[in-house]
Design a protein around this nucleic acid. Structure first.
Lengths: 237, 237
DNA sequence: CCTCCTCTTGAGCGATCGATCAACAAGGGC
DNA sequence: GCCCTTGTTGATCGATCGCTCAAGAGGAGG
């Protein structure tokens, strides 16, 4: 029971050089820590322990604190690495691409976006941060709302000959229209990555089918939402 | 800084009767603990601490262990209280109600189901349990799949003159059809309860609108999925 | 070979975790 | 009035948390 360490490092006479903890450059060591922290905290949640993280990395626990002054700063770095760094400016370009119909822009954005976030670490750390009350999830979804959905809805208004957002501001129900389809796609990943359901081998194909089913009626529903939201007698029509 | 206790209980000479910790019957004390534990663990996650839970209840921490031998047993009790006990047999009756069209059964089930689970404790503990690797979420969603979606899909097959599940087993894509709409509705609650987004005042109305938008095309999509899933030359048609 | 810089570690600090135990206290039955 | 059952608590245990610090150890430059 006592000598349970798997390999190396003799128990007594502690000054024996370790085989695992090779000497690395500061840069590569920091990268190793960040990658390991992403995988570890994704698995056990942000309440994970620094000692266990160090054990998995094969390094001593104080070494973590040489590269990150606190556990919170390491988690902050994970946010940058997993969420901010994986945000693609191409998404914002896609939804503004005037050469494509709005529905096709939405479809292309969602397929690529979902492929990005249907990731063990992305989804689990996102949810864990939400549970812990961090503002990362709300801020991130605020970006989706303002940088993706808002310009898309603006062009959907134009495509349907509806008043522009300058003339008649976007209403919550319009965003809910897009968040509804969005949520159906996200839920596919959540069931697998967070709830541990084993079904659905090809989630990408499932999402493509969902979009095929939901998109055809979207513009009509959008028109209904906007016209109903504006109880003004239609003069110019 | 030292005498920071809010009320009662003198600091020194510790044997003073406490005003808050009144003597309760075992039954009502246990209920108080369960209710408080649900609220507390929903707020901070299942990694919450027994000392803080006891402090919020105004009782001593060891009292928790008189009613629940371990923290895990208390959490197990929460599962029974929040999930098993709130499962409504009426849901299984609704989706089998032959006097209603399948789409109406689905609509009624989802509206009532979502009203049940769009609850701070329900959603957050569900997600927290999933992150900690407990099998509660997968088992619960398995119940939804087998007891709700499976009988509903069977009758949808009949309503569309498609082969019964006995003749041709239900395929994963059919379940995904229902889980897609289901996920869009769940996501409305998740954004508010877990991700902390403040939007959407009347989530119930938003979900009703989502169903109005998604249900009309559901049967046609279902027919397409089933017929495509069976690459046999149609003879008897 | 020695030196110095820097990556790395063992030991340990104060705080806090889940859980235990003997002692206190509030009523109900006699 | 007393006693005995039972709800309740303070004190405390061993383990583990985030974090600190001084000393060990591996290379590059001289």
């Amino acid at each position: 029971m006592a000598s349970s360490r798997p390999k190396g490092r003799k128990a007594e006479s502690g000054t024996v050089s370790v085989p695992t903890g090779r000497r690395l450059t500061a840069e590569s060591r920091e990268r190793q820590i960040v990658e390991g922290a992403i995988a570890y905290f994704a698995e056990v949640g942000l309440d994970g322990h620094t000692r266990e993280l160090a054990r998995r990395l094969g390094i001593a626990q104080p070494l973590l604190f040489r590269y990150f002054p606190t556990k919170a700063s390491l988690i902050e770095r994970i946010y940058e690495e997993v969420y901010l760094k994986r945000w693609k400016l191409g998404w914002e370009e896609t939804v503004r691409d005037a050469s494509l119909p709005c529905l096709e822009r939405f479809r292309r954005f969602e397929m690529d976006y979902q492929r990005t976030i249907d990731d063990y670490a992305w989804l689990r750390i996102f949810v864990s941060a939400g549970l812990k009350g961090f503002d990362l999830p709300s801020r991130y979804l605020g970006m989706v709302r303002e940088r993706i959905f808002a310009p898309l809805l603006e062009d959907m208004r134009a495509e349907s000959n509806l008043p522009s957002p300058q003339a008649q501001p976007l209403v919550a129900d319009e965003f809910e229209l897009l968040f509804g389809i969005h949520g159906a796609l996200v839920y596919v990943g959540l069931r697998s990555r967070v709830y541990g359901m084993d079904g659905t081998a090809d989630r990408d194909a499932v999402r493509a089918a969902m979009l095929d089913a939901a998109l055809p009626g979207l513009l009509a529903t959008h028109r209904r939402v906007v016209t109903r939201a504006r109880p003004v007698n239609p003069i110019g029509e």
